[in-house]
């Protein structure tokens, strides 16, 4: 057959030479990416420290398996055809086989993806209840409900006993923690996410989203605001600290008392979360003006005005704060930031 006529020897040699370029390119890609892989195992998702993440990771691996299969189904024939049917220097005039299609093949590669996708969708629906509605481990175990507020540019948490925490959330080991995620009405969108403990949910002003997790290992798990929220979006980091149950209960009870008395670290935490990201850890100024030595810090009413309502580029970080949080912040500012010297009696 005309079509199958072999190319001349020269053509074959040229083909081999031409192959050198793509092989070099492949080495360029695989070398560094392979090296970068070696550390974490590449396509492995983050460690799973809660059953919901384990279940969504199962979905990931199922899809990864099918994706690998389809990738092979596409690239292996393609590569074989590229090598087998390469022109070998034949003229453009030489036509390939004039095949216009094949109904059975069309049906096959319509039906196969439909089947695969049906399996994937079915598996997702099977897994969803275990992801969205975590069962309590021991019967009669109550859930710990925590309110999460996303704000420019910090996270504020409120426990059922009104303890307030900023950015770092402490939770007990093995108990289902339910998060009610929102944002103050005058704020912007954020998204709460601790990869090891569950998917992300948006904190949107005027809306409430819910998620839950049950941490099964003591440790601190980090995350980051996952919805672009403005100039300090990248600094909006959060963490969940998982503590043994007893230790957590003690801490929570003590903290409640300390916050009522004004003896807790709430002021410092509030400063670090709500102020320091723009004004610097010691009030030295960053994208916001310096606070150290600023006379405003002596004028509680004026300061409170700005903190609660915002001013210019500064968001209303303190909108909706209770007085005890404002008191705590004011105390911290006077002691540690105002004079810069840490003088106890700043006024």
């Amino acid at each position: 057959m005309m079509l199958r006529r072999r190319g001349a020897l020269g053509g074959a040699r040229q083909g081999r030479k031409a192959l050198a370029v793509p092989l070099c390119a492949l080495a360029v890609i695989l070398g560094p990416t392979g090296a970068a892989h070696a550390g974490t195992g590449g396509l492995t998702p983050v460690d799973q420290k809660s059953p919901n993440v384990e279940r969504s990771t199962d979905i990931y691996y199922l899809i990864l398996g099918f994706s690998g299969l389809i990738m092979l189904l596409v690239t292996v024939p393609l590569l074989i055809f590229i090598v087998r049917y390469r022109g070998r220097g034949r003229s453009r005039e030489v036509e390939g086989a004039q095949i216009r299609g094949n109904t059975r093949l069309e049906l096959a590669w319509t039906a196969l993806p439909v089947l695969i996708l049906a399996v994937i969708a079915g598996f997702v629906f099977y897994k969803v209840p275990g992801i969205t509605d975590l069962e309590a481990e021991a019967s009669g175990d109550s859930r710990l409900e925590i309110k999460v507020d996303g704000r420019q540019f910090y996270w504020q948490y409120r426990y059922p006993n009104d303890v307030i925490a900023i950015d770092t959330l402490r939770v007990p080991l093995g108990q289902v923690v339910e998060l009610e995620i929102g944002a103050p009405e005058s704020d912007v969108n954020h998204s709460f996410w601790i990869p090891a403990l569950g998917g992300k949910f948006d904190a949107i002003p005027g809306e409430t989203t819910r998620t839950s997790f049950r941490a099964d290992e003591v440790g601190t798990y980090e995350g980051q605001c996952a919805e672009f929220c403005g100039v300090q979006h990248a600094a909006m980091l959060q963490a969940v600290e998982v503590m043994p149950r007893g230790e957590f209960e003690t801490w929570l009870a003590n903290e409640a008392g300390a916050q009522r008395r004004g003896a807790s670290e709430l002021g410092e935490r509030t400063y670090q979360g709500a102020c320091a990201k723009c004004h610097g850890m010691a009030g030295e100024g960053l994208i916001g003006p310096p606070l150290a030595g600023n006379s405003l810090l002596q004028d509680r009413d004026a300061l409170e005005m700005i903190v609660r309502n915002g001013q210019g580029a500064m968001p209303a970080v303190g909108e909706g704060w209770e007085d005890r949080q404002m008191d705590a912040l004011f105390r911290h500012l006077r002691r540690n930031v105002a004079g810069g010297s840490g003088a106890e009696d700043g006024s």
Binding site: L3, A18, Y85, R92, G101
Partner: peptide, 18 residues
């Protein structure tokens, strides 16, 4: 997917000019 498989099939038994 139908498109992708059809493109791959188009290269089958061709005279591929790169």
């Amino acid at each position: 997917g139908i498109k992708i498989f059809n493109w791959v099939a188009t290269t089958w038994r061709g005279n591929l000019i790169f």
